[in-house]
């Protein structure tokens, strides 16, 4: 580090999964839950400066409410070095039920934040009743849906965000790879809406689907050393 006054920070990337009751948390709730788990584990968190010091947590991509994740990522900043084994052991004792720690590693010299590097995601939608939408959506020219934001709503096309439809053994499942991240992101609630509006799926079947985000894809790392 060039700045002699800079405080040493250790960046730990934690991979975890979410299911059950925790699926219904909003992103802010998820952040608080992770923060409190870390504090219960008494890990040496790095706190921001100022009147209201906060630990730094950077989540790769918040999953929407009601979506399970199989590999979710968060970067945690520590002010002291803690071995990965120790880190995982301590945290495993304090996370709530339904949050499972998978692995962790120390991140060195990554310039861009993990959030900015997310580019795609694999999702599985598992419907209670038969529903084969794979071919339909792959062959569709457009998948238009109304996206509501706080101030206005607009029509957007989801089709360009669909990257792949995987073959699935299960006739009730839809396995897809879609664009994800801060630039372009296909939301599963919007996709569900399209399935109803454009492809005649029953609302009941779609709304009761179990939705799982299997994993995320990241753009290549650029390190500080180039």
């Amino acid at each position: 580090m060039s700045d002699p006054n800079a405080v040493q920070k250790w960046q730990v990337r934690l991979c975890f999964s979410i299911k059950g009751a925790l699926v219904w948390l909003g992103h802010l709730d998820m952040m608080r839950t992770m923060e409190r788990s870390l504090r219960r584990a008494e890990l040496p968190l790095f706190y921001s400066q100022g009147f209201n010091p906060r630990p730094e947590l950077v989540f790769a991509l918040p999953a929407g409410v009601g979506i399970e994740t199989e590999r979710d990522y968060v970067d945690i900043f520590l002010r002291e070095h803690v071995s990965i084994t120790n880190f995982l052991d301590r945290l495993a004792k304090t996370v709530p039920p339904n949050l499972t720690l998978l692995d962790a590693h120390l991140v060195v010299d990554e310039k861009k934040s993990i959030m900015g590097r997310v580019c795609a995601a694999d999702y599985g939608l598992y419907f209670p009743k038969a529903a084969s939408f794979g071919t339909l959506i792959w062959e569709a020219q457009a998948m238009q849906v109304e996206k509501h934001s706080k101030k206005k709503s607009r029509i957007i096309d989801l089709r360009p965000m669909l990257l792949e439809v995987y073959d699935s053994e299960d006739s009730n499942a839809l396995e897809i790879k879609v664009k994800a991240g801060s630039a372009e992101n296909m939301r599963m609630d919007l996709l569900s809406q399209v399935l109803v509006d454009q492809f005649g799926a029953s609302e009941d079947n779609v709304n009761n689907a179990r939705i799982v985000r299997h994993d995320l894809y990241f753009l290549p790392v650029k390190t500080n050393k180039g």
């Binding site: 009751a21 039920p97 009761n208």
Partner: peptide
Amino acid sequence: SRSLLRSVEKPARYVGG
């Protein structure tokens, strides 16, 4: 059901855990 929890405000308050 999932559809019920998806249709209400702040579903986290009904699921415990």
